[in-house]
Design a protein around this nucleic acid. Structure first.
Lengths: 142, 142
DNA sequence: ACTGATCTTGCAACTCAGTTGCATATTCTG
DNA sequence: CAGAATATGCAACTGAGTTGCAAGATCAGT
């Protein structure tokens, strides 16, 4: 019940429209973060306007439903923040794994890396949040 | 002597041209990573072509002189990788601190965060490199 | 120091992701 | 079910970054 697109949209105060349901289904169905392009591909036949898709993804992100990840090559990837939809996307600690071979981005659970932050604090920086990006080979590609 | 632009260019097998010297001086003179735009600003009067600047920065990065940082808002920032020019920019472990107030990006020394990587390896990911981004308030802004 | 191969520069024209404005359609609250 | 609020689709635009090309600068070898 929890993962029903319509419920989720309502939960995040987003109007329930066919486009949003389709996009959300695609995102829910993917283990990895998807680009605007990826989503368009997976919605071939539904013929969703590119502007609408941008706006949809931005609405999702604004409301905290999805997480917008900047990539090395200046693209945005979007992913449902938490598989269980329990934690909001405003959480402070993120980690992403970028596969060098297939370029897919995986969201990983991250424990805080206290030592990193401590040394920054010593240098006069006040750390409020952090993002960790790991590069390498994903389980599929190695 | 070490920080003389001409010497540095030579050291990195880059041809010594007026444009490159100017750009390098700007980068050397900045404690923070600069965007194409920032650099253009600081070179007002020298009237450097935007394409040339892009190509210059890319050459620098290819040769390992500078470090190209993708920002939240889809810009690139460029910074001399190491203040002492001792370590090449091809090093695998990077950390950046992004100030929430002034939006400046600082390069920070980073010790490896082994626990992070270990847990990824357990999950089937092979970690080859990593990037850490910390957000918060820099010494100037707090 | 001069020559020539090689790399750099500057300009114009282009590409492409993403945005804006606006008119129309849809949602959902009362 | 009516009406305000929001979403959609289209066309035209924006702006960072790229490409092609001709002219200019660099530097190694003589």
């Amino acid at each position: 019940m929890k993962r029903d697109p319509r419920n989720i949209l309502q939960q995040y105060k987003l109007k329930n429209t066919p486009v949003r349901v389709s996009v959300l289904e695609v995102l829910l169905g993917s283990r990895v973060a998807l680009s605007h392009n990826d989503i368009t591909e997976r919605l071939k036949g539904k013929d969703i306007d590119k502007v609408t898709l941008y706006r949809t993804l931005n609405s999702f992100t604004e409301k905290g439903l999805t997480h917008k990840v900047p990539t090395e090559d200046r693209n945005w990837l979007y992913a449902i923040f938490d598989e269980d939809l329990l934690r909001p996307a405003t959480d402070h600690y993120h980690a992403h794994f970028v596969c060098n071979k297939c370029d897919k981005i995986y969201c990983l659970p991250v424990e805080e890396h206290q030592s990193m932050q401590n040394s920054s604090i010593k240098m006069g920086f006040k750390v409020l949040s952090s993002e960790v990006r790991l590069h390498g080979l994903c389980p599929v590609c190695q």
